[in-house]
Write a protein that binds this DNA or RNA. Structure first.
Lengths: 219, 219
DNA sequence: ACTTTAAGCGGACCGCGGTCCACTTCGTGT
DNA sequence: ACACGAAGTGGACCGCGGTCCGCTTAAAGT
């Protein structure tokens, strides 16, 4: 239970909570009614505040609803379920990460060689997910949904692109999933906290993995 | 929801349900009272039967308790929680798999070259988990616990051993986790059912991954 | 301004996993 | 045979996530 995590801004856009975590396409968002938008914002603010106070694991949906002065039904109508709320909470940070690897400065963003960008990608993801560890762990409580969410799919697409650009041989999509498997929040957390693996070691392992697929020996 | 899955034998040993999935060490098991052992068996039988009838996802803990004619408290005392019960249900199959790669015939068991055994291992795990898909998916509902269970740790140890035997270079433990990440039930299932990847392709991807670490180019 | 209506709202309600604790039973030592 | 303690038992109880449905309200059309 990593606690505080300073409160953070709540995104105003993305009304439905459905396109969350997909950078770029706020298109097709069905436009919320004014009161609904207000409630959405308040709910996210309250959730963030309570999570900062006592850790997201100790915040119930009722807490959030009643903290925002709305009924429980409103919360579920807006976010679908608990996971949806968590995803929405994470979306702001997630978008920052996405912006960094899609259009930020090299070596993470465009400009550096693909292999180098891949290495930087791993490092960035590890740090990012570590920073918001509790949220990611909570949001991944339902393992089946993880890979269907837009943020994950964007990562897959991005890694595929870099692999192709790096002339990686083999089944690109499968390789991408293999690489992303290494970056799984739960695995990283397990290795770091339960197995005593250091961050440097993790990073080295990532670079090694990337190298195995992006040439060095198979050209 | 893959349904039927013929009923299967229920293990009589392993009283506490705690050492389940750890092949070999029924040592240290605290010896159940006769009635408790009887109830344990009945519970597992009922659970297996109901799961075969309507799929494990549609079986509640109350169903099982009342189907076995015992109170709910009894179920939880014996198995700790739902996951514990599922693990116990799987333990028989899991042990068969373990026996196969620990002491079965080559190429999966001892006798074949390590790299070949590793390739066979992936194939075996993929088929095995696919066979009991629903159970594994249900048992992995809580992602954090997966890697702390004895069965997973045994897999890690086994893969580490084979990697060392194959003179794989790099950080063996991390490599083992990378490999096992590829075999994650949820990932495999996602690729097979949601992404239309074929079994052969999956298998080829596994062999490729193994080869990257066990020589071929890095010697 | 007035109507209309789809979207939003709230909170009672449900089912499930999990806990608790007073009571029973097994099996051991005498 | 018996007494006694540890292990086992059952079912009432709890909290949480999630649903339902009758009421309210924002905002678009006229």
């Amino acid at each position: 239970m990593t606690e505080p995590l300073a409160p953070f801004p709540v995104p105003q856009d993305d009304p439905g909570g459905l396109t969350d975590l997909a950078l770029m396409p706020p298109v097709g968002a069905p436009q919320l009614r004014a009161d609904a938008a207000r409630n959405r914002t308040r709910l996210l603010e309250v959730a963030a505040r309570l999570a900062a106070e006592r850790g997201i694991a100790n915040v119930t949906m009722d807490d959030i609803a009643c903290g925002a002065g709305v009924g429980k039904g409103t919360v579920f109508r807006r976010f679908g379920d608990r996971t949806g709320l968590l995803v929405a909470l994470l979306s702001h940070h997630e978008e920052q990460l996405q912006a960094a690897f899609l259009s930020g400065p090299p070596p993470l963003g465009p400009g550096a060689p693909a292999a180098e960008r891949l290495r930087a990608f791993g490092s960035a993801v590890i740090h990012h997910e570590r920073l918001y560890r509790d949220f990611y762990l909570a949001a991944h409580a339902e393992p089946g949904r993880r890979r269907t969410n837009p943020a994950y799919q964007l990562r897959v697409a991005h890694v595929c692109m870099l692999l192709r650009e790096a002339r990686a041989d083999g089944d690109i999509e499968l390789v991408a999933h293999t690489l992303l498997g290494y970056l799984e929040t739960v695995l990283i957390d397990h290795l770091l906290t339960r197995r005593g693996v250091t961050l440097e070691r993790l990073q080295a392992g990532w670079c090694d993995l990337v190298d195995r697929y992006t040439g060095r020996c198979t050209g």
